[in-house]
Design a protein around this nucleic acid. Structure first.
Lengths: 190, 190
DNA sequence: TCGTCATTTCAGTAATTACTGAAATAACTG
DNA sequence: CAGTTATTTCAGTAATTACTGAAATGACGA
């Protein structure tokens, strides 16, 4: 591996993290490298930087493209492919969320729905379906929220995040008022 | 594998998904099985249900315990260990979020901080640091939000999710008012 | 059309990860 | 304490996944 020390630390870390996700070491490293590179890189440059085989780079780039995490660029009078990541980290986050949802959440939702359609043939199956239904409900609620916020432009999303707690406090205040009203009525009754 | 058909579908699906996460097939299957079981199960029951070795069950349960995804129970006059998952799916979600953060986000944050402390020795490193700093900022914003909302009780969290879009609409309304005010003032100046 | 360069494919192999069976440990009981 | 049962450990092996080098494909210009 042939990289400036700071870049190398970053690249190695992403390699290790890669295996902690579903993604593999090389894919993680290439992504990290592209992310910090000031210019788009071609396959040969990646080979040199990471010291891995040309074919491995080819396959890993293909995987990154499948994840939509990488942009393909071309320079005039040069028929090699150059790769970068989007500049905007919020955009990257969106892509990541979308792709993980597609791969990890959607299939589960559809399996759950399919199973919930079927007639339980025993008490055990009845109970299992009830549990799956709880899971299904939770996931639906989360994805509805996600579909909602993913539309937001970056600055609004940022505001929403910063607000996070404050919205909560507002809700708490509302709850207190409501419960005050309730206890007042209870008192009046008793 | 010796399970009612509906349960089996669910278990097999979780096994496959398992490998898509960092977790492995067996761990995923055991978790799914425990999740839908009406009663806590002991290791031997898991062996029979899934048709895997006793030692594999032992290791996989250990992993699930490391993730805090599983509860250990004891029956009176029985010294075997019985396992369940928490009843409350929201609690499960919280645990999952917390553990994934611990494993996937925190280490990255600390690597980023460490690198950002160092003096860049070249223009390439300077640029890399700038990129890492953007990433660091984004992750910090997300984790701050997360630390905030994870405190919420279940029903408040649910409300917050349901609200998601509406809060947004409120923000949009506020933006419009602000920008109206701004353009009015601009007009007055010109 | 041929030669060159860029990329992809893929069979073979290396590396890693998952799983098993046997033995060890641990926790109890008579 | 010896015997029984539950669990864990771990060396060996199976299975899976990652990676390589060589060959194939494709896309161009002469």
């Amino acid at each position: 591996m042939n990289l400036p020390p700071l870049v190398q630390s970053f690249v190695l870390h992403f390699g290790e993290m890669g295996s902690r996700w579903g993604i593999n070491r090389t894919v993680g490293q290439i992504y990290a490298l592209l992310y910090v590179s000031p210019e788009p890189l071609n396959a040969e440059q990646i080979v040199e930087a990471l010291g891995i085989s040309r074919s491995n780079v080819s396959m890993s780039l293909r995987e990154l493209q499948a994840w939509n995490l990488v942009l393909l660029k071309h320079l005039p009078d040069d028929r090699r492919d150059f790769f970068t990541t989007p500049d905007d980290v919020w955009q990257i986050l969106r892509t990541l969320a979308e792709e993980r949802k597609k791969r990890e959440v959607d299939p589960t939702l559809s399996v759950l729905r399919e199973i919930l359609m079927q007639q339980p043939a025993s008490e055990a199956e009845r109970h299992a379906q009830a549990r799956m239904s709880e899971m299904h409900g939770l996931i639906e609620q989360l994805t509805t929220w996600y579909e909602d916020v993913k539309q937001l432009e970056t600055d609004r999303l940022a505001t929403l995040l910063t607000l996070g707690a404050k919205v909560t406090r507002l809700l708490e205040a509302k709850d207190k008022i409501v419960s005050l009203g309730r206890s007042k009525r209870t008192t009046e009754k008793g």
